[in-house]
Structure formats: structure tokens, C-alpha cells
């Protein structure tokens, strides 16, 4: 997605430096990166209304698509083919969710770029502790996922 965003926005005079700033800022702020980029560039190009229009533009296609898909799926809800398709889609989705674990664990719990310095360097003990604490706290306390992630962040500041 990122190269496409850059390609389109360079038409508005966005430099590579500005773009990498947007990406960096997006990774440090909550929310989806495409929305963040749209807001930032919209603001730089045309102030507040630019930001509002750009953000509206980035979410409208999703809106239209979902409305169409939702109504199509409701129509075929009792179809056997759709139902058995979903019986295969659900496990596939679980597999993809599990792959997101690897995505988040990489560069926090493990860092494969350090493998040349020895296997011990790949694992980050502090991050593994945060991982274990999060699992334990989620099982043993009633804390919600948002508090748990923020606690993880604070532990990161203290221990990493």
C-alpha cells in the first residue's frame, strides 16, 4: 500500500523526506496508517478542510464496498455454497491472525536482523517478559486489551 500512496501523493508535491516523516509519525500514533497519511498530506496541501476531504476520500470506498458486500452476503446467507465456503474461510482467517502475531513479535520479541551477531541476540529478554506478563495479566485479571497494551508500552520504557 505504501508505495502506491507515495506515487499518488508525489503528484501533489510530496517529497520522499516528507513521506517518510508521515510513515514514521503514523507508526507512532494510533490509528490506520492510510488515514494518518491522508490527514497529514491533506492538511499540508489545503489546511483543515484539505485534511477533512482527504480523510473522507480515503474512507469512502471502504464504505461503499462494505455496503454492497453486506447486502450481497445477506441475500445468499442460506446458500449452501456460501456457508461451506465460510467453513473454509474461517480457519484460513485464524491462520492469518496468527501470522499477525509474528508480524508484531518481529522487531520486538525477536529481531532477525541481529542473527549474524549470534542466536542469543535475536531474542529480546525484556520484550519476552512483557509478552509473558501480558498473557498472565489477561488470564488472571479483568484488565481490558487497551490497558494491557498501554501497560506493555510503559514497561517497555522502564525495562527495554
Amino acid at each position: 500500500m505504501l508505495p502506491m500512496i507515495y506515487q499518488e501523493l508525489s503528484k501533489f508535491g510530496l517529497t520522499m523526506q516528507e513521506f517518510s516523516d508521515v510513515v514514521a509519525i503514523s507508526q507512532m500514533t494510533p490509528g490506520p496508517i492510510a488515514v494518518n497519511a491522508a490527514t497529514y498530506i491533506g492538511y499540508k496541501a489545503a489546511g483543515f478542510s484539505g485534511a477533512a476531504f482527504a480523510t473522507f476520500g480515503v474512507s469512502l470506498p471502504s464504505f461503499i464496498l462494505i455496503m454492497i458486500i453486506a447486502s450481497v452476503i445477506v441475500k445468499f446467507k442460506s446458500s449452501n455454497i456460501i456457508n461451506s465456503a465460510f467453513k473454509g474461510i474461517r480457519p484460513a482467517t485464524v491462520g492469518m491472525i496468527a501470522s499477525a502475531v509474528v508480524f508484531f513479535a518481529n522487531t520486538s520479541i525477536i529481531d532477525m536482523s541481529l542473527i549474524e551477531q549470534g542466536l542469543g541476540k535475536v531474542f529480546n529478554i525484556g520484550s519476552i517478559m512483557i509478552f509473558v506478563i501480558t498473557i498472565a495479566a489477561s488470564k488472571l485479571t479483568k484488565l481490558d486489551p487497551i490497558s494491557l497494551t498501554l501497560i506493555g508500552g510503559v514497561l517497555g520504557i522502564i525495562f527495554l
Partner: peptide
């Protein structure tokens, strides 16, 4: 953010 990524992967 490293801490957040670690606990996000757990969750």
C-alpha cells in the same frame, strides 16, 4: 512502541 508491539503480539 517496542513494549506495545510485544504485548500486542501476546494479545
Amino acid at each position: 512502541f517496542t513494549g506495545i508491539r510485544a504485548s500486542a503480539s501476546a494479545l
